[in-house]
């Protein structure tokens, strides 16, 4: 960070913001403190870089001509109505939740973005209250090391290249979604020319941004909600009859309904009909309950649970205990 450079860019901003018409480079060079004493080439390069930096901050530096007769005589200006935060009012309840929003992000880059957004609101005279609502503390994290790059690629519509399960991929990232504590990215896999979803924590190495911003558009007929739903567990399409001991396995009992208990159940067990899908690890869920949950039907599920349990029986060759 160079104080001289920050000064020069601030002075350039003020100069362009105060301009009533497009200012040509010669005028800017003469009037903005900081360009004086530069060689022609040095000034050209520095001015171009300064403009780029301002645009990266979201400052709308416009290029144009003052005269329709001489369209090639270009100059620069910043229109105030495009520069300033539009007037906006918030109620007390809204400023309270905005203050809370400032504490949500644990991921450093996004936490910085919320800090600067709230600083702008405060600069506009909106008193954001960050001390209230101590009883609600949602947090959002992103432990995935390449999260930042995927966020940048998605929000600026840039292609991104990365390795996934040993395969190189080039993706046009459409959306990112956070589910069960993990981030996913969905977009067009360019080489395969089809839509793909990736779990960002499984991306290998450091991805690279490819090409320019705004390089693609998200298809307008995309049903984002349906795509995101595809990450949710499949709806149950089968039913198991389980024998559950007393008050045990409350989650399974609440998911199901009381069934008719057949003769011969061990003392204290009752039958429940519980819907399930083979796509989730229902076998594991039942096996985890040990002697508190027994599968009565279907037989295939029962065998799978028994096989899972047998791993823990001494003398079983394929088992853990040898």
């Amino acid at each position: 960070m160079s104080p001289r450079k920050s000064e020069r860019i601030m002075n350039l901003t003020i100069c362009l913001l105060m301009a009533r018409r497009f200012l040509d480079k010669a005028h800017i060079r003469e009037n903005v403190e900081g360009y004086a004493g530069m060689t022609d080439g040095n000034f050209e390069r520095t001015f171009e870089r300064d403009k780029d930096e301002l645009r990266a901050l979201g400052v709308p530096v416009e290029t144009g001509s003052n005269s329709p007769l001489f369209p090639d005589d270009v100059g620069y200006r910043i229109r105030r109505q495009n520069f300033e935060l539009p007037p906006v009012q918030f109620t007390a309840a809204e400023t309270t939740v905005l203050g809370l929003a400032g504490r949500v992000w644990e991921q450093a880059t996004l936490a910085d973005h919320t800090v600067s957004a709230l600083a702008k609101l405060r600069a506009a005279g909106i008193e954001v209250d960050s001390s209230r609502m101590a009883g609600i503390a949602p947090t959002m994290g992103a432990r995935e090391p390449s999260f930042d790059l995927f966020w940048q690629a998605t929000t600026s519509s840039r292609r991104i290249g990365f390795d996934y399960r040993g395969q190189p991929r080039t993706l046009e990232p459409w959306i990112m979604t956070y589910r069960h504590g993990a981030w996913y990215v969905l977009g067009l896999d360019v080489e395969r020319n089809s839509q793909r979803m990736f779990k960002i924590s499984r991306v290998e190495g450091t991805p690279s941004l490819i090409g320019k911003r705004g390089a693609f558009v998200v298809p307008t007929d995309l049903d984002l909600a349906a795509l995101v739903r595809s990450l949710e567990p499949a709806a149950p399409d089968r039913e198991a009859v389980l024998a559950i001991r007393g008050e045990r396995a409350p989650e399974l009992r609440r998911r199901g309904s009381a069934g008719e208990s057949p003769d011969g159940l061990p003392l204290g067990f009752a039958a429940y009909r519980v819907p399930y899908t083979p796509h989730s690890d229902f076998v594991g869920e039942v096996a985890a309950q040990g002697p508190d949950v027994l599968v009565l039907s279907p037989p295939e599920l029962r065998h799978q649970v028994i096989r899972r349990l047998q791993a823990w029986v001494a003398g079983n060759e394929s088992g853990v205990l040898g």
Partner: peptide
């Protein structure tokens, strides 16, 4: 008056 929000600022606040 402050500069208007960048897309990243709005988006991070919206998600929060």
């Amino acid at each position: 008056r402050p500069l208007r929000f960048t897309a990243d600022e709005v988006l991070s606040l919206v998600i929060a």
